[in-house]
Amino acid sequence: MKVLKNYLLNSSYQLLIVIIPIITIPYISRVLGTTAIGINTFINAIIQYFVLAGSIGITTYGNREIAYHQSNKEKRSQIFWEISFLRFCTIALSFTVFCIFLAFQKQNFEIYLLQSIAIIAAAFDISWYFMGVENFKRTVGRNFIVSIISVIFIFTFIKSPKDLPIYVLIITGTSLIGNLSLWPYLRKEIFAPKWKTLALGHHLKP
């Protein structure tokens, strides 16, 4: 029954992912225009390299490790904190490299800066934990709400090509807020970190 429920939740979210662009893309294309869309797409592609470099595959790895130990709260708590702090470190390194890269950019500086919120958002993404404990309701519910809010904001605030910075802020800002919104649920899920026993290195190779 739980497997079926998780399947239906995940399927409904995948359907939402398909439907939302059908609603927003025609509007965004018409309002922002090809130049603004091109700038946004190009910069977003660059930002995703920094997100990928900073995330180092932790979403898949963390999901698997939590799934292995989901019945042992103490063990999964330790694993969660080790992987989370490792990701904070790697994202911080990636963001530092991005800042160096940004120093050489003379055009669209503001868009680069707003897009970089996506790198910070990646540091706080703990959806892999909830997937590992098979609590799809948390992640799907969060993603659903964030997606709906972003659509409302897009139709409310995006009216012309000059609103490109606002559009980028809506996309990256809702992503960051959505990731942060999952953290309060951890209070009932895991124990506080044991700082003296945290070992990050052995997670780096896998």
Rank of each mutant, 00 (worst) to 15 (best):
M1Y: 02
M1K: 09
V3F: 08
Y7K: 03
L8A: 13
L9G: 03
Y13L: 15
I17D: 00
V18A: 13
V18W: 09
I19S: 02
I20T: 15
I22K: 09
T24H: 06
Y27R: 10
I28L: 11
I28G: 08
T35M: 05
A36V: 06
T41A: 15
F42W: 11
F42E: 12
I43Q: 11
N44H: 12
Q48C: 01
F50R: 10
V51G: 01
V51P: 01
A53E: 04
G54V: 02
G54C: 04
S55D: 14
T59W: 12
T60A: 15
Y61R: 11
N63G: 12
N63L: 14
I66H: 01
H69Q: 08
N72L: 12
K73V: 15
E74C: 05
K75L: 11
K75H: 02
K75T: 15
I79R: 00
F80H: 10
W81H: 10
F85Q: 05
F85W: 08
A92S: 15
A92L: 15
L93T: 07
T96Y: 00
C99G: 05
L102G: 08
F104R: 08
Q105A: 00
Q105L: 00
N108T: 01
F109G: 05
L114F: 04
Q115D: 07
S116C: 10
I117R: 03
I119A: 05
I119M: 04
F124Q: 04
D125K: 09
S127G: 14
Y129A: 04
F130A: 03
F130P: 01
F136N: 07
F144R: 05
V146K: 03
I148G: 01
I148V: 15
F155T: 02
F157C: 08
S160M: 11
P161N: 04
P161L: 12
K162N: 13
K162D: 13
L164E: 02
L164H: 07
P165M: 09
I166Q: 11
I166S: 10
L169A: 15
L180Q: 04
P184W: 03
L186R: 10
E189M: 00
E189T: 02
K194H: 14
W195C: 06
K196A: 07
T197I: 11
H202T: 12
L204G: 08
K205R: 14
P206Q: 05
